[in-house]
């Protein structure tokens, strides 16, 4: 029942998504720990899509993942909401942190260097703003989709879709 409700609200529901894993996150530290584990499983060329309401923890997860991959717990990871994309040198090569919240039209992606960035590791907040077709291309190509939900307190649930082989190895 709960699972059904989540699927109905999932931003990728039109892509016939199947949630493959649900992880309960009791606090922010748990979100950061999940980010580090996903960072370890990531590879250059991967796309990690982060969906969820304002305040759901998308940036927190992205920040922890980037700091982990950059081997720098104090790395400055400002919100990319304004600049739309920020790039970082990591041990997976260059990683690009996108926030498409302000994107007006998916055609604007080209101006952000999207096509070049796709060769590297990309983290994308508000991926649904790129439109269902481009989103489906990404999920078909093996993107990991993370949908964060919160009951309105500090706990979160991460609903993961994709990376079936890799997530299996995750405790």
């Amino acid at each position: 029942m709960l699972r059904e409700r989540v699927v109905n609200r999932h931003p990728l529901r039109h892509n016939r998504i199947m949630i493959s894993r649900e992880i309960h996150l009791p606090d922010q530290a748990a979100t950061e720990e999940l980010a580090r584990r996903l960072g370890d499983l990531s590879r250059p060329g991967d796309a990690i899509l982060l969906s969820g309401d304002l305040g759901a923890g998308k940036s927190t997860l992205a920040r922890a993942l980037l700091r982990h991959l950059a081997n720098d717990p104090n790395l400055e990871v400002p919100s990319p909401t304004f600049s739309l994309v920020q790039s970082y040198a990591t041990r997976r090569g260059t990683a690009h942190h996108f926030d498409l919240w302000r994107l007006g039209d998916s055609a604007e992606l080209a101006e952000l260097g999207w096509d070049e960035a796709m060769r590297d590791l990309i983290l994308v907040e508000w991926p649904e703003k790129m439109g269902p077709e481009r989103l489906r291309e990404l999920t078909d190509a093996g993107a990991l989709a993370i949908f964060l939900t919160s009951p309105g307190d500090d706990t979160r649930t991460a609903h993961l879709t994709g990376w079936p082989d890799r997530l299996e190895s995750m405790p």
Binding site: S59, R63, E76, V77, P78, S79, T81, F82
Partner: peptide, 9 residues
């Protein structure tokens, strides 16, 4: 400076 969001954001 800000460690996460800008104030305008």
């Amino acid at each position: 400076g800000t460690i996460d969001d800008s104030v305008g954001e």
